[in-house]
């Protein structure tokens, strides 16, 4: 039984169609990624799910409820972390969490949450004095302080340094392990690959793919690449004759072989038969990044 169902969602701003036709379902307890280039309609989609915007067409159901009609109920049960939402400069960490906790019927204990998010020594620090990572963690804490069943997190780690980003990922996994369903909007492929059970790629207001990150990579971009430095000259034909190989390129003394299937085994065997040693050998497998480029025709931002 899905906890979020989006069917044929359509939303426009004047003449601009932000979301053309988006459908997906999120299962209880998963981390569901919404990926896409900037302006693809990701944020608008989750804003409709969060009940912040009224769809022009199609339906959204969250926990079996209507985000607009049952807004009051859903605000108790769904936590939302919006893109670029800040707090007043002089508000302190503990004050913010205690205030937001007071809005909910069954809130989490603010003090425990502060410790869990590693903000224990910042409890009495004003918002403006927090680092980017700390602000982000506070923002996540505010989305979780109501003990939600679903957390919607938009652009979770944008603007964070790599360490803070990894820490945040660990945190999100903990939250999921506590039973919260998470909808994660991101344009970081690494983040989606690491965290998401399933991802929907949205481009120009439509879902162009919906699968697990690994499944998406293997169907969309099954190519592998091997780079090595041969110890003796290699005839290209030796490699191109292999059924697994689709292309051979040379850059300086380096040979780059592209192909599918048991590519590594096929290439190393043929080299061994000709007594050629492959130095500096590296196997590069496609990532979600490559799949994304295949699907949308452009590189993800950053």
């Amino acid at each position: 039984m899905p906890v979020i169902e989006v069917t044929k969602l359509h939303k426009r701003y004047g003449d601009l169609v932000a979301v053309d036709d988006v459908s997906f379902a999120v299962e209880a307890g998963e981390i569901f990624g919404v990926l896409g280039p900037n302006g693809a309609g990701k944020t608008t989609t989750v804003e409709c799910v969060a009940g912040l915007r009224v769809p022009d067409g199609g339906g959204v159901s969250v926990l079996g409820l209507d985000p607009r009609r049952d807004a009051a109920q859903l605000r108790q049960r769904v936590g939302v972390q919006l893109q670029e939402s800040q707090l007043p400069d002089r508000l302190r960490v503990a004050e913010a969490l205690e205030l937001y906790a007071s809005f909910y019927r069954n809130p989490a204990d603010p003090a425990t949450l502060i410790d869990k998010l590693g903000l224990g020594d910042k409890r009495n620090t004003a918002y403006k004095l927090l680092s980017g990572g700390q602000k982000q963690r506070l923002s996540i804490a505010l989305a979780l302080v109501g003990n939600p069943e679903i957390a919607i997190l938009d652009e979770l780690t944008t603007g964070l340094d790599p360490q803070a980003r990894r820490d945040t990922w660990g945190l999100i996994e903990q939250v999921r392990d506590s039973g919260v369903t998470i909808v994660l909007v991101t344009h970081f492929m690494e983040e989606a690959e690491r965290l998401c059970d399933r991802v929907a790629v949205i481009d120009r207001g439509r879902v162009v793919a919906l699968d697990s990150p690994a499944g998406m990579v293997s169907t969309v971009a099954p190519q592998q690449r091997i780079r090595f430095r041969p110890s003796a000259p290699v005839d290209d034909r030796l490699l191109t004759d292999l059924p697994e190989v689709s292309a051979v390129q040379r850059t300086g003394s380096q040979v780059v072989v592209t192909g599918t299937g048991e590519l590594l085994h096929a290439v190393t065997s043929v080299l061994a038969r000709h007594q050629i040693v492959a130095a500096d050998l590296r196997l590069e497998q496609s990532t979600l990044d490559d799949a994304f480029v295949e699907l949308t025709g452009h590189r993800p931002a950053n």
């Binding site: 969060a50 912040l52 009051a72 605000r75 108790q76 769904v78 936590g79 939302v80 919006l82 670029e84 939402s85 800040q86 707090l87 007043p88 937001y100 809005f103 909910y104 019927r105 505010l142 109501g146």
Partner: peptide
Amino acid sequence: TYRERGVLRRLATTPA
């Protein structure tokens, strides 16, 4: 300022 910085918007996602 509260509107520009998304304070009002964040509040709109809560029961308040």
